[in-house]
C-alpha cells in the first residue's frame, strides 16, 4: 500500500464512521444556537480543518429525519434579500438524544481502545 492509498483508505474509514454519527454531530452544532443549513455545514467543515468529511447534500436528509423524529424544529428566517433561510432549533428531545449518543460513543470508544491495545498488554 502506497502512502497515498493508505491516506485514501484512512479517509474512507473516517467518513464511513462519521456518517453514522451525522445526526449527533448536527444536534451538537445546534446545542448553543439556532443555525441554518449552510451555517451548520460550514461549522462542521471548519471544525474538521476544511476536509469535507460530511457531504453537504447528505445533511438535508439528516435535517429531514431529525425534524420528523422531533429532535429538531425548523422555521423560516425573515431575510428580505436573496433566499430565505431555513433555521433549525434543537428540542428538549434532541438534547436528550444528543447526551445519550455522546455517552454511548464514549463507552464504545473506551471498549474499542481497550480491544485495539490487547496485544500491547500481553507483550
Amino acid at each position: 500500500m502506497t502512502p497515498k492509498e493508505a491516506a485514501q483508505s484512512a479517509a474512507t474509514f473516517a467518513s464511513d464512521l462519521l456518517r453514522g454519527h451525522t445526526d449527533t454531530i448536527v444536534l451538537g452544532v445546534l446545542r448553543d444556537t439556532d443555525r441554518y443549513g449552510f451555517e451548520i455545514y460550514k461549522t462542521i467543515r471548519e471544525a474538521t480543518g476544511g476536509d469535507h468529511e460530511i457531504k453537504e447534500a447528505t445533511l438535508y436528509a439528516t435535517f429531514r429525519r431529525l425534524v420528523k423524529d422531533g429532535l429538531v424544529e425548523a422555521y423560516w428566517g425573515d431575510e428580505t434579500q436573496g433566499g430565505r433561510r431555513k433555521y433549525y432549533r434543537i428540542t428538549d428531545a434532541g438534547r436528550a438524544v444528543y447526551r445519550q449518543n455522546v455517552l454511548d460513543w464514549t463507552a464504545t470508544q473506551t471498549i474499542i481502545n481497550t480491544l485495539l491495545n490487547l496485544k500491547g498488554t500481553t507483550s
Binding site: G37, Y41, G82, G83, K86
Partner: peptide, 16 residues
C-alpha cells in the same frame, strides 16, 4: 418546494 427554498437560501449564502 420547501427543499428548493431551503437550498436557495443556503446556496445564496455560500455564493455570497
Amino acid at each position: 418546494q420547501d427543499l428548493k427554498e431551503e437550498l436557495r437560501g443556503n446556496l445564496t449564502a455560500r455564493a455570497a
